[in-house]
Amino acid sequence: MSIVQRVGHAGAPSRPAGPGGRALAALFSREFALTIPALVLLGFAMGYPLATIVERSVTDFPGGSGAFLDNYKWFFEEELNRVVLLRTFRTAAIVTLACLLIAYPYACAMTVVGWRMRLVMQAAVVAPLLVGTMTRNYSWVILLQDKGPINDALGAVGLGPLHMIGSLSGVIIGLVQISLPFIILPLYASLREIDGRLMGAARSLGATPAQAFTRVYLPLSLPGVVAGSLVVFVVTLGSFITPALLGSPQQSLLPQLIAQQVNQLLAWGRGSAMGVILLLVTLLLIWVGSRASRGSAALSGGGRR
């Protein structure tokens, strides 16, 4: 807090100043000074490392030498990389869709139940977040194993043992459960804002319940749907631990491939290029998502007024 104190005493004497002088003074204002420690951290722990990665992706080549974009060319030419990239996207899409299908009714229910029940439902969403990533992954390793409790239960009702751990399906199950809170929370926040009377108004104007839902409720909930889905999609794209523990090397996802390049093959250039691609894809998605949600927010804003 020493910074607050030191610059705080400088005070802001109110004396006439030219417009240019004022802009300069604002740049070096007390308020800006307060952000400097954080900026230093961001610069050293994010800016500099990311710059290093970008640099390595265009200067570090497995053979020792190569042309500017060789690592990127390699990424898109290698069959395996394309397969993994596609698999990563597909997995993220499936997980997002599954999360949405589970989260939407749950979040809807949260808006209609009494406050006591709502508190319980909210606690159930927040609790897994507190439990810790490793604990949840560990639990899924136990639950999904070939002789684990889920297969026991399936056997009891006469369904053959399923091979879930070490397969993409195991990864998807784990990711869905782990990601659920990230979509329920924003979805609930946006559904809560919808004026319940609008549904009644639609009904009184002759809409069937289904029409009232699809024409009124669903469009109004779109901003929350987009925001929540985006979080899950982006987090899944970058997930590393769950695929590593529940999946198999034969069906690895992009983050694992990146780690492999860096850790096992010491191919920093290729790993870095893959990381940059992952980042660009993520930023693109966030940009598209925020445009989409702004569009639907404008639409629903009109409805709310």
Partner: peptide, 11 residues
């Protein structure tokens, strides 16, 4: 605000 000191004045 100029009297209480919350705005800088231009003259």
């Amino acid at each position: 605000n100029a009297i209480s000191g919350f705005t800088d004045v231009d003259g």
